[in-house]
Design a binder for these strands. Sequence first.
DNA 1: TACATTTGTGACAAACCTGTGATAATTGTT
DNA 2: AACAATTATCACAGGTTTGTCACAAATGTA
Lengths: 229, 229
Amino acid sequence: MKVLIVDDDRTLADLLAFTMRRSGFEPIMAFSAPEAIRVFEVQPVDVVILDVNMPGEPGLRDGFDVCQQIRKTSDVPIILLTVRDDEEDVVSGLSMGADDYVLKPFSPRQLVARVKSVLRRSSPKGHIAEEPFTFGEIKFDPNRREFLRPGGSPETLTRLEALLLEYMMLNAGQILPAENIISHVWGPDGGSTEMLRQLIRRLRMKIELDPTKPELIQNLPGIGYGFKA
Amino acid sequence: MKVLIVDDDRTLADLLAFTMRRSGFEPIMAFSAPEAIRVFEVQPVDVVILDVNMPGEPGLRDGFDVCQQIRKTSDVPIILLTVRDDEEDVVSGLSMGADDYVLKPFSPRQLVARVKSVLRRSSPKGHIAEEPFTFGEIKFDPNRREFLRPGGSPETLTRLEALLLEYMMLNAGQILPAENIISHVWGPDGGSTEMLRQLIRRLRMKIELDPTKPELIQNLPGIGYGFKA
DNA sequence: TACATTTGTGACAAACCTGTGATAATTGTT
DNA sequence: AACAATTATCACAGGTTTGTCACAAATGTA
């Protein structure tokens, strides 16, 4: 599994290479935008890690141009590296075809997780279906987002509803702190208790026999919610 | 949930210990690199907080060496403490296996959030449950705030009641000074003896067989309260 | 023993949490 | 572009929790 690492900062590039090698990938290095394109043309890779800020030349000024260029000819997953305050960079990069991004500085574990995540998402062959959840006669298939229970009709959940239910089922029998749930569903800086409340409501409407007397989704005041095992 | 705190600055180390204890962790202290390794070898911990700049000895010169050493044998999450301008420190530390870092100076809240975050990331399910407390046939589950004792019905405690009981159980068999209890439950500038009194009353109403003759929660006049082991 | 302080108790007010409904904004599909 | 579906935002209500005040009982000290 080859990973192309594109970064003009050699220290960081070495760190990235070290990290990826440690996780079973074979790193291929490029230290500028033009070099990245050259390397990419002769060496097929499975994923690209691409620093946004990097010297280039006319027509290949920075990481964005590299991203765009690669995207013209390839579907390879691309992860952008950017600094914390450059959220505009992120949006631009994603609109140019990048698949994900990681904010500097980052932990090795986080980076590897992201790489694996984009590989999972982008590979039709490598896609491994998630196991359905089963609790007695209750079933939830995260791949189809389909919920089944006796006494109720099959329900197709929306994206956020499915994310929520999956997280609660993964930790069935526990009450999960609201902040954990929010972070999991909406990301580190997204969401609110109010949004969670509304999502809980919508999910209950779909999966409880009587949403006013919930049996599956429990609340502990001041703490959070959980799925009763 | 045990946290190993490694810092040669004893004042800061004590503050860290206080902060972590307040958030439900049990702090284990080490004040030098060699001591950290010795402690780590005999005491399993759930997370390590590690100051980068710290006196050591050949082979264990500073926090980085500790990090590297620990990483050889363990996947325990490691958080580095470092000063603002040492981004190279961060990269080095991360390349040696640390999971995250916190820049000095930092707020207690930020540190706790980071600790919980790395624990969450390192847990496959994304949630860590706290251990229940058991004293004979008496049980208290802080996750559900549920109190059980023979001869009484199960009680769900409120947030503050649970905070109080947990703190007393963590220090069972001792009389805790009122000001410490108040600080723990309401924060450094919150609370009052009057509020504590009322909270004690409410907790006793829930967990004592006869609240007028308390057996579990004891008072030492002029000092404070404690949970009888 | 007398008095001061601490602790226990009860009652009510203020604040908070969660459920619910409605509408606006955003996203996805044709 | 039009429409449908999903998500976010706002508002309100009911129930619970916490804070505040007042008074009684217990404890400690001179």
